[in-house]
Design a protein around this nucleic acid. Sequence first.
DNA 1: GCCGTTTTCGGCCCGACTGTTTTCAGTCG
Length: 600
Amino acid sequence: MNKHAIAGILNEIGVLLELKDENLFKVRAYHAGARALETLEEDLDTVIAEGRLQGIKGIGEALAKKITELQATGRLEFFENLKAATPPGLVEMLEIPGLGAKKIKALHAQLGISSIEDLARACAEGRVAALDGFGQKTQENLLAGIRNREAYGRRHLWWEAFRAAEPILRGLRALPQVRRAEHAGSLRRGLETVGDLDFLVAAEEWAPVVQWFVSRPEVAEVTAKGETKASVRFTSGLQADLRIVPPDQFVFALHHFTGSKEHNVQMRQRAQARGLSLSEWGLVRAEGEGTAKEKAGAKRGGVGVGPGSIQTETALFAALGLHDIPPELREGLGEIEAAELGGFPRLVEAGDLRGVFHNHTTASDGRNSLAEMVAGAQARGWEYFGVADHSQASFQANGLDAARLRKQIADIAALNRSGRYQIHVFAGVECDILPDGRLDLDESVLRELDYIVVSVHSAFSQSETEMTARIIRAIEHPRTTMLGHLTGRLLLKREGYAVDVAKVIDAALANRVAIELNANPQRLDMDWRHWRAAAGRGLLCVINPDAHDVAGLDYVRAGINAARKGGLTAAQVLNTHGLSEVRKYLITKNPMAGAVGVKT
DNA sequence: GCCGTTTTCGGCCCGACTGTTTTCAGTCG
C-alpha cells in the first residue's frame, strides 16, 4: 500500500475517532500523521526498511506501527473494527453545515439517528429541538442544510462562479473603506469547478463592508455575519464568504486563502526549513515557536521578516527564495520546485487571442446568423473568425451536407469580398468522426475548406480501444486540422467517453494536428492537466469557444483560464498568431486553405 | 497519539461566529 492510500486511511481513522468522541488531540494526531506521510519526500518503503519512520515529526510509536502494518499487508484490524462499529450514515452527516462530531454523537445516542434521512425525519417531527444543546433555530438550520445539500450541494462551473464574483469584486473595490479586494480559492486558481466564492478585503473600517456584502440583491440567505467575516448564499445556490483583514495582512491572507491546500503545505514546509513560519497572518521567524509578541507582530502584518514589510505575493515568494507563481499554477504539482529554478514564462492571456475557429451559426444549431457572429467577433477585436458548423451526421444539430456546406462557403467568400467587415472569415466545418473513424464528408468538399475540426458526437459507449483507434484514424486524415473536444465530457453532468489521451496526443503530434482546448465552460476539454507535458513536446493548442451565439464567443475567457492552468504560453496557442501566420499554418494541411473569398 | 532548553506528564489549538446559553460549547475554515 502506498503512502497516499495509507494517509487516506489515517484521515478516515481520525474522522471515525472523532465520531466516537475520542480525545480531540488524539484525533488531530491521526490527521497530523496523515499529513506527515503525504508530504514525506523520501520513499516510504525505504524509510520503513531503515527503521526511520518513528522519528518523523508527527509519527510516534503507535502510528509507526499502524503505518508499517498497512504498508506490509494493506490491512489494519484497528481500522476495520472501528469502521464496523460506526454507521456509515454518521460520517455522511458531517456534510450538513452546523453538524460536527459532538452533535452527531448526541443525535445518535439520544434519538438513534444514524443517517441524513433519519435526521430529516426527526427535524420534521420536532424531536431535535427538544434535545439539550439544540433548539428551534438549530433544528430549522439542519433542515435547511439538508434541503440545500440536495438542491445546491454541488460544485459550480468556474464560469458561473466567475460571472457571479466579478460584479461583487467591482462593488467591493468601489467602497470608500476598501483598500484592496480580490477573490481567492479555486476561483482565483481557475479550477474548472468551484465550491464556493471567497472574497478577501483589506479595509480600515469593516462594518460598512460587511453590511454592503450581505445586502446584495442576489443574496438569498445570510448564513453568518460578524465583525470581520460573513457568509451568504446567493439565489443561484452559490455560497460566498467575505473576510476582512487589516491592509498589512492582506497579502498573507490572499496567498493563504488562494491555496491550494497542497501548495500551502509545501510553502509552509519551505518556510520552516528556513527557520520561518508562514500563515495567513504573516511570515515570522520560527525561533521559540513564535512568542506571543511575535505572533502579535504577525497579526499586524508579518513584519517579522526582512527589512521592509511584504506587500505583494511576488515579495512573499521572493522572501522564500522563489520566483513568482501565478495563482493558476498553485496546485502543489511541482510549481514550487520550478519556481526555485527560474521564473515562469508569461502565460497566455485573453488579450493575446487574434481569432477563433470553432463556432456555429444558424446554418446548423447556432442561434445567430453568419453575419451576426462575424460582427460579434469583430467587436471583440479579433483579426479572423472561423465558422465550423456541424456536418450531416449530426442530424440532431441540423448538420450540413456537402451541398449546404458549399452554399455556406460561397456565403463566406461573398462576405470576405464585400468588405463589410475588416475581420477575415475562415470557412471550416466541425466534421463528425463516424464510429469507424472515417470523416463524415468527402474529400471533394473538405478540400474546399480552409480547415477542418474533427469531433466525436455519436457512439459514446465504444470501448476505449475502439474509441482511441477511431479518433486516431480521424487525426490521420490528411485534411484534418484540429481535434475538437477530445473526451466529450460535460463538467458536473457527464463523464467523457473512454479514450487513451496519451495515444491521441502522440497521434496529433505525429500528424501535426492541433488539439482544441474547447472553452465552453462545461467542457474545457482537453483537460488542463494534460497540456503542460503535451505542449512541451510541441503539441499545438487551439482555444475555441464552440460558440452557438454571439455571447458564447466570450467563453474564450474560460479557455484562457484552463490554458493558463495548463502552463501554456501564447506561442503554444495557434490562435494567438496573426492572420498571415495562421494562413501559412493552414496551408500545410490544405494548399487551398485561406483562399476562400480572398481576391487573387 | 505526539512531544520535550517547560522532557515521561501535561500540554497540544486558533480566531470568528452562531445558538443556546446566563458565561460557553460546538462548528468552521
